[in-house]
Simulated assay, not measured.
Amino acid sequence: MRVLAALSGGVDSAVAAARACDAGHDVVGVHMALTRNRAATRSGSRGCCSIEDAADARWAAEILGIPFYVWDLSEEFEDRVVADFLSEYRAGRTPNPCVRCNERVKFDALLERGLAMGFDAVATGHYARLSGGAAAGRPGDLSELALSRAADRAKDQSYVLAVSGRTGLSRALFPLGDAPSKAAVRAEAQARGLPVADKPDSYDICFVADGDTRGFLQRSLGVQQGALVSPDGEALGSHEGYFGFTVGQRRGLGLTRPAPDGRPRYVIETRPATNEVVVGPEELLTRRAVDADGLVLLASPEPLDDDREGWADVSVQVRAHGRAVPADVVVDAQAGTLRAELHEGLRALAAGQSAVVYGGADGERVLAQATVR
Rank of each mutant, 00 (worst) to 15 (best):
G47W: 01
L64A: 02
L73G: 05
L236Q: 04
M117F: 11
L295A: 04
R166N: 06
A259W: 04
S45E: 15
E309K: 09
M32P: 01
A61N: 06
V27E: 00
P258F: 10
F243I: 03
I66H: 02
A150G: 01
G177L: 02
A259H: 14
E341K: 11
L298S: 12
R171C: 13
Y69G: 09
Q225N: 11
G336A: 12
S158Q: 03
V296Y: 03
V30G: 10
Q224A: 15
G336L: 11
G360L: 08
E269I: 01
V316G: 10
G137W: 04
V316E: 12
V357P: 04
L130N: 05
D332V: 05
D79S: 13
V223K: 14
R214K: 15
V70A: 00
V229M: 07
V267D: 01
A235Q: 13
D313Y: 12
R251L: 14
E240T: 09
R104Q: 12
R186T: 09
W311N: 13
D141K: 06
F174L: 12
E282D: 14
L145H: 07
Y266D: 03
L110Y: 06
A116D: 08
G363F: 08
R171E: 05
G226A: 05
A299Q: 12
S148V: 05
E240I: 04
A109D: 07
A227S: 14
L295W: 04
E103M: 11
R100Q: 11
R339G: 01
G193I: 06
V185F: 06
E240Q: 14
V372C: 01
A184C: 05
G363T: 10
V223C: 05
G215L: 10
A292E: 10
D201T: 06
V247S: 08
Y89S: 05
E144C: 12
A33Y: 00
D56C: 03
A5H: 02
A273G: 02
L284H: 11
F68P: 08
R166Y: 04
V27S: 07
G132A: 08
V267Q: 08
G294S: 12
V15N: 04
V325A: 08
G345V: 08
W59Q: 15
E103D: 13
Y203N: 14
N96E: 11
V208S: 09
T286A: 15
N275E: 12
V30S: 12
E112A: 15
A299T: 09
A23K: 06
Y127P: 00
R153I: 15
A289H: 13
V105E: 03
A6Y: 00
Q190H: 14
S43A: 15
A128I: 09
A227P: 07
P95G: 05
N275F: 09
V366S: 07
P200F: 02
L295P: 07
M32W: 13
E88V: 14
V208Y: 14
V122E: 02
G244W: 04
S43K: 15
Q369G: 09
L295E: 05
E78G: 06
F68S: 13
G65T: 08
L145S: 00
R250V: 11
S148D: 03
D108G: 09
G226H: 00
S8R: 07
A312Q: 14
A259V: 11
Y266L: 07
G336T: 01
L304F: 02
P139F: 05
A109C: 01
A154W: 08
R323F: 12
G322P: 07
